[in-house]
Design a protein around this nucleic acid. Structure first.
Length: 502
RNA sequence: GCCGCGUUCGUCUAGAGGCCUAGGACACGGCCCUCUCAAGGCUGAGAUCAUCGGUUCGAAUCCGAUACGCGGUACCA
């Protein structure tokens, strides 16, 4: 193992977000490619918004994607693993107060007694004067007496970290190259501890990244402007400065940062739609990065082998669902029969629960269908739409669909009746696709029909749909009795309709 | 407002000064296959490489400015 250490640090204030998953993936690929260590840390200091349910969703989502961490919570049976824990920020509170006290003692930080109202008023004033909004440093040099006076007033101070004036903070970002930001653009001295003593994000990141010896901070571009604050904090803490790599953002179709308002961002929703993790990871990896070759379908192992952080794109990438579906289809087609059957099972259960089918097919029933089903599944959840009609007792069928475009109702009744006769004659013993097809083709030829017309009429009669897997395979799967019964019902419906509404 | 980052087909991207009359993929059109739908094969259309200026014998690639977009600017993460 190298001394490369990277981390993903999600906040359990919502379900696992696509962007978090992608950042996690890039960290994971980078760690595995370099032989480094991948760390998972939960940033749950926002107690107002964090929930255990979200925490679980994030953990489960990561596992579903096949992203495994070397250090962090919930690995295998252990509640936590690693020598740099705990890996939940709420369990690290002591280290933040300790670090803050150290900064206070070294006068790198100070207590600020300004009230939120005073700060707000100051900000308004600055905005009105078209000045940069920044903390004015009013409490930066308080005397002991002044402090005592504020305390006597009952003011609860926050702790502010001193940001030096007019200093250019430069770093070489692995994906963006040289970046330089002046400290004057940082908004003044930074609050690191709230008045209730709890730490703020920028502070916890620096303290934890230092404690966990993170060597490369790989995160979204939305943190690029915050990086100087972190660098200053690392310095003040006496910690080495890690390398940074800021990933391009995943975008809504309107090219704004991807949000749940405008896009489906929850990873779990994609799982429910029948995207498979291999495909999802494959797609995510290629969002903002490419191998430089024309390879598109890549396994986790192949991604790990080829991953190169310095080849990550700088521009934001619009999330393209069409392309995701295509990759998903590619992956589904590559699945073994047993694997696909197992993965399909939960989706049949959903169909049953929703009342769209009346019973669950057996594994063997699914297995014989696979040759005609597998290449027709863009998503696993499409299976109900595709072959659900096989598992319903009473087929719902729109009589308007049954008459082919070139035919009228009378011809359709004639065609269906003749076909029904031949299908019955084929019989149970010869119940296979070829045996069914040959006599029907002869019938078409004898009558001077088009095969497509007759077959379409049969298709709708037997499945209720105009788009299905190949007709004869479908009838074989349906079975002798049920095929005839559905044919009879269709003929009956159509006949009644033809006589009542000529 | 200020600061930062970005800009190659609709979308994801290849491209690291001559291999670029810019390649691939998704989506789209056509053809083939075909009982429908897919899948697959072939094929077509689609990018004045944001704009302007500079460096160079030569620029999508280097430099600068401009425009536009996005992000950041909290006692959120």
């Amino acid at each position: 193992m190298t001394d490369i250490r990277v981390r993903i640090a999600p906040s359990p204030t919502g379900p696992l977000h696509l962007g978090t998953a992608r950042t996690a993936l890039f960290n994971f690929l980078f760690a595995r490619h370099t032989g480094g260590t991948f760390i998972f840390r939960l940033e749950d200091t926002d107690q107002a918004r964090s929930t255990e349910a979200y925490e679980l969703d994030i953990l489960n989502g990561m596992h579903w994607l096949g992203i495994r961490w070397d250090e962090g919570p919930a690995v295998g049976d252990e509640p936590e693993r690693g020598d740099h824990g705990p890996y939940r920020q709420m369990a690290r509170m002591a280290s933040y107060t300790e670090a803050a006290n150290r900064l206070l003692a070294e006068d790198k930080a100070y207590r600020c007694y300004c009230s939120p109202e005073e700060l707000e008023a100051e900000r308004k004033l600055q905005e009105a004067a078209h000045q940069n909004v920044r903390y004015n440093g009013r409490c930066a040099k308080l005397t002991g007496a002044e402090r005592a006076a504020f305390e006597a007033e009952g003011r609860k101070p926050v702790v502010r970290f001193r940001i030096p004036a007019s200093r250019a903070i430069a770093f070489d970002d692995i994906v963006r190259g040289h970046v330089e930001i002046d400290t004057n653009a940082l908004g003044g001295d930074l609050v690191i501890l709230r008045s209730d003593g709890t730490p703020l994000y920028h502070f916890t990141v620096a303290v934890d990244d230092a404690a966990m010896k993170i060597s490369h901070v790989i995160r979204g571009e939305d943190h690029l402007s915050n990086t100087p604050k972190h660098i200053l904090l690392f310095e003040a803490l006496g910690a080495p400065i890690p390398q940074f790599g800021h990933l391009p953002l995943i975008l809504n179709p309107d090219r704004t940062k991807m949000s749940k308002r405008k896009s489906q961002t929850a990873v779990d929703a994609y799982k429910a739609e029948g995207f498979i993790p291999e495909a999802f990871v494959n797609y995510l990896a290629l969002l903002g990065w490419s191998t430089g070759t024309e390879e598109e379908i890549l396994s986790q192992a192949e991604l790990i082998e080829r991953f190169d952080l310095s080849k990550v794109n700088r521009a934001g990438a619009v999330f393209d669902r069409e392309r995701l579906e295509w990759i998903n289809g590619q992956w589904i087609r590559r699945l073994s029969a047993d694997d696909l059957i197992a993965r399909l099972r939960p989706f049949f259960e959903v169909e049953l629960a929703a009342g769209r089918i009346d019973w669950l097919p057996t594994d063997d029933e699914i297995r014989v269908l696979l040759p005609v089903v597998q290449e027709r599944l863009p998503r696993l959840s499409a299976v109900g739409e595709l072959i659900g009609f096989l598992f319903v007792r009473d087929l719902e069928m729109d009589p308007a669909l049954i008459v082919p475009k070139r035919w009228d109702a009378a011809t359709t009744v004639v065609g269906l009746t003749a076909a029904r006769q031949l299908i019955a004659e084929t019989g149970k013993a010869a119940w296979d696709a070829h045996q069914l097809e040959a006599p029907l083709r002869r019938l078409v030829e004898d009558r001077g029909w088009k095969a497509g017309d007759l077959f379409m009429a049969i298709r709708v009669a037997v499945t209720g749909r105009t788009a299905t897997p190949p007709l004869f395979d479908t009838m074989v799967a349906l079975g002798y009795e049920r095929t005839l019964a559905r044919l009879d019902r269709a003929i009956e419906k159509l006949g009644a309709q033809a006589t009542t509404a000529p």
